[in-house]
């Protein structure tokens, strides 16, 4: 028990003293999750809206596929992205393997099903009279899209927060595609795994505390927006 308490105490010292190695992993994590969340929200929200709003042949099987992808293992995504980005792969010339952009691509694939599925659910659960009301007030398809998203804003926030949680805490993609390169592609989760293996509990706990703080900040923001919404 003592070594855990000592680890927590050392972790606080590390964070307070601005240990550059620790903060390098934090910055890499924020950067890569920002990129992947930006991309997955940009692509996932319109696709989720279409999936929830439109009725088309094959909608149910497609929905099942998207829902199945929610539990896609991160190591599998890591493996596939690695294969595509490696020098022998189809996108090898782009030299994205062992870069933050490479990790972001993998994490976007991880977050997309979450954003699409939860956005579709949020749009489906909108009142069925909303569309008729908007059309009868003269809204164009673009205005219906934007207003429907605004009406479903709480559902979209939940989608974004859930996806962010998944992206922030994954190890498989960051490890396989990023390679856990110090100062370059080492993220919070890969650093925790490495430092724990090395017996450096203090750094691991410090990074864990940062992860907790990030999750707490996101949830507080969500609660605040919920109250306002």
């Amino acid at each position: 028990m003592d070594f855990i308490l000592q680890g927590v105490a050392q972790a606080i010292v590390l964070l307070a003293s601005g240990d550059w190695e620790t903060y390098s992993a934090v910055f890499a994590t924020v950067q890569v999750s920002g990129l992947s969340m930006g991309a997955s929200l940009l692509i996932g929200i319109p696709l989720g809206y279409l999936l929830g709003y439109l009725d088309f042949p094959g909608k149910k099987p497609l929905r099942t596929v998207v829902d199945t992808l929610l539990s896609l293992p991160t190591v599998f995504i890591g493996l596939v992205v690695y294969a595509f980005l490696s020098y022998r792969g189809p996108f090898g010339e782009l030299s994205l393997l062992f870069t933050l952009t490479g990790i972001a691509i993998g994490q976007t694939i991880l977050a997309l099903p979450v954003v699409i599925s939860l956005t579709a659910t949020a749009v489906e659960s909108l009142d069925r009279h909303l569309r008729l009301t908007l059309v009868s007030l003269g809204a164009s398809p673009r205005q219906i899209f934007l207003t429907s998203l605004w009406e479903a804003r709480l559902g979209l926030l939940i989608a974004a927060v859930t996806a962010t949680g998944r992206v922030l805490t994954e190890v498989g993609i960051s490890m396989m595609v990023g390679g856990n390169i110090k100062w370059q592609t080492r993220t919070i989760t890969t650093a925790i795994a490495l430092e724990t293996n090395k017996g450096q509990f203090a750094t691991g706990i410090a990074l864990g505390l940062v992860l907790l703080a990030l999750a707490f900040a996101i949830n507080v923001s969500l609660s605040f927006l919920r109250r306002r919404g």
Partner: peptide
């Protein structure tokens, strides 16, 4: 044309 004609549905939806 749709902007000249408007409808009040039986159960109108009020935006949030």
């Amino acid at each position: 044309a749709s902007r000249r004609i408007t409808m009040l549905p039986q159960e109108p939806y009020l935006l949030r």
